[in-house]
Simulated scan of single mutants.
Amino acid sequence: MATDYDAPRKTDEDVSEDSIEELKTRRNDKNSGKVDEDEVEAAEAFELPGADLSHEELTVRVLPRQADEFTCGSCFLVKAASQRAESRKGIDYCVDCV
Rank of each mutant, 00 (worst) to 15 (best):
A2D: 13
A2R: 06
T3N: 11
T3F: 12
T3K: 15
D4R: 12
Y5I: 07
A7T: 10
A7I: 00
P8W: 09
P8Y: 07
R9K: 08
T11H: 12
D12N: 01
E13I: 07
D14N: 01
V15G: 04
V15H: 01
V15A: 09
S16T: 11
S16R: 15
D18R: 10
D18W: 12
D18H: 07
S19Y: 06
S19P: 02
S19C: 01
S19L: 04
I20C: 09
E21T: 07
E22T: 09
L23D: 14
L23T: 05
L23H: 07
K24R: 12
K24E: 12
K24G: 01
T25R: 14
T25S: 15
T25W: 14
R26D: 14
R26Y: 10
R27M: 05
R27L: 14
N28C: 12
D29N: 13
K30H: 15
K30P: 00
K30Y: 10
N31S: 14
N31F: 15
S32V: 03
S32Y: 07
G33C: 10
K34Y: 08
K34G: 03
V35W: 06
V35L: 09
V35Y: 06
V35F: 02
D36R: 03
E37Q: 10
D38S: 10
E39P: 09
V40A: 12
V40H: 06
V40K: 12
E41D: 10
E41F: 01
A42D: 08
A42Y: 00
A42G: 07
A43G: 02
A43H: 01
A43F: 03
A45N: 14
F46Q: 03
E47L: 09
L48F: 05
L48D: 13
G50K: 11
D52R: 00
L53P: 08
S54A: 06
S54T: 00
E56S: 01
E56P: 02
E56Q: 04
E56D: 14
L58R: 11
T59E: 12
V60A: 01
R61P: 00
R61M: 04
V62F: 09
L63F: 06
L63E: 09
R65P: 05
R65V: 02
R65F: 04
Q66D: 11
A67T: 01
A67E: 01
D68W: 06
D68N: 04
D68L: 05
D68S: 04
E69N: 10
E69F: 03
E69I: 02
F70C: 02
T71V: 15
T71A: 15
T71P: 11
G73N: 03
G73I: 05
S74E: 15
S74N: 15
F76M: 14
K79M: 08
K79R: 13
K79I: 00
A80I: 04
A81H: 03
A81D: 13
A81V: 07
A81E: 14
S82D: 12
Q83H: 03
Q83R: 15
R84K: 13
R84M: 08
A85V: 05
A85Q: 10
E86P: 01
S87V: 09
S87K: 15
R88I: 00
K89W: 08
K89Q: 13
K89H: 11
K89L: 12
G90L: 10
G90D: 10
G90M: 11
G90T: 07
I91K: 03
I91L: 15
I91H: 05
I91Y: 02
I91C: 11
I91S: 05
D92Q: 14
Y93R: 11
D96W: 03
D96N: 13
D96R: 13
C97D: 05
V98S: 10
V98M: 12
